[in-house]
Nucleic acid binder design. Sequence first.
DNA 1: GTCAATATTTAGTCTGCACTAAATTGATGT
DNA 2: ACATCAATTTAGTGCAGACTAAATATTGAC
Lengths: 237, 237
Amino acid sequence: MTAARADAEYTAPVEDYLKVIYDIERHAGAAGTNDIAQRLAIAPASVSGMVRRLADQGLLEHERYRGVRLTDMGRRVALRTIRRHRVIEAYLTLALGYPWDLVHDEAERLEHAASDELIDRMAAAIGEPSTDPHGAPIPTREGEIEERALHSLADLAPGERGRVVRVSDDDAERLRYLAELGLVPGTEVLLLSRAPYGGPLALLVGAGPNADESVAGAGERMVGPALAAAVLVEREA
Amino acid sequence: MTAARADAEYTAPVEDYLKVIYDIERHAGAAGTNDIAQRLAIAPASVSGMVRRLADQGLLEHERYRGVRLTDMGRRVALRTIRRHRVIEAYLTLALGYPWDLVHDEAERLEHAASDELIDRMAAAIGEPSTDPHGAPIPTREGEIEERALHSLADLAPGERGRVVRVSDDDAERLRYLAELGLVPGTEVLLLSRAPYGGPLALLVGAGPNADESVAGAGERMVGPALAAAVLVEREA
DNA sequence: GTCAATATTTAGTCTGCACTAAATTGATGT
DNA sequence: ACATCAATTTAGTGCAGACTAAATATTGAC
């Protein structure tokens, strides 16, 4: 029952749990033990124990068998960690020329070691960007985040046009392939057609502002639905 | 007995042990349990257990009651960690404008999280410096280090002249004070006199290449022997 | 050479965070 | 209403790395 502050030190595993729970909660309302376990690549039984500890620390609330929700404090800690992660990703690409498929793993470790002071200096050095290299929004120092509801590329209707805003960053291989296809944030896409029964989508990919990053220019592309789900777009007229 | 590689992953505590053992060994030939414990701010009894584990991994050799010596592999791991630490320190000051009294603590945490790839990019970005901001030599990627034998300021004879090459970096407060006195690497000093029985030294401090860093200009200074011991100099004609 | 001071090790404990195997609860289809 | 399946929790274990208290080895003084 000690009212701990959100600026205390937390272990790397704790920060990882909170990050993952934050993300699951956003999409599903509450985070189940199994989802957490899968996202962290650990056994579900291991999650139960940690969840109890996190609840004791006031970082989340747990209804047995019904899942987990972050408290305000837990959310603050999660967002601070997410800010660190994304600022580091942005800094590595913009200031050190890191390729965009490698920054995630590096940030995954550095986020637990970097001080807020360092994060702020990094952010300032690259002009306080509002998103990371994969298009994910960077929370402010104060823990504000601009989460807009996005559609996946797979949700577009044939003939509909959209702009890539964000891509999933947790698989380096996939990121490299997306870059090859030109599917990077800022690129315009037009869904030409969608084959039925989970078949491939045909796209017209236009050049975006990050065209220097992408290997290929504009052109027609075929992508499977799993890949399309990893590409988030905003609809356009 | 498994012949592990030096490029495997080690935990942060393991890297910390190896670093301090490397350092103690350099000055004293072999590292005693007590010295290690004191440098790591842990109980001596805790060291015994860890030392056994490190010996089992082939990182060091241990003669009971006689101290510890790194193996070649242990030394390689230690030097890699030291390189990380010092490159990070140099990068933070040169690329991010970090004040020199804060970089040590930051590097102390980041050194365990940064990949070799990142360290190399940082080093390249600041022009592969040969020393960190406190004058400590940076080991090469290959684990070579140029350790020159230095005297402390306290060893100079009255009337002797020297140039500050390196200062101890483990106490932020002291670093700030040294900077105030102008005792930063590169500065010329002339020992005017030494009071007997551990009394203060009188110095003439001249401007060095890092004069912009130091608050004070050239002038006469009085320092105690403890502080003088933290300043390493090379003798001059 | 013996004795005290000091250094080191052992013994036993604790915490965090993972694991497997087994028990339990909740949801679902008939 | 009940059987079954999936999700979750409990029980018991292991490892890393710290701790204290107690035992033991080394060293230095006399």
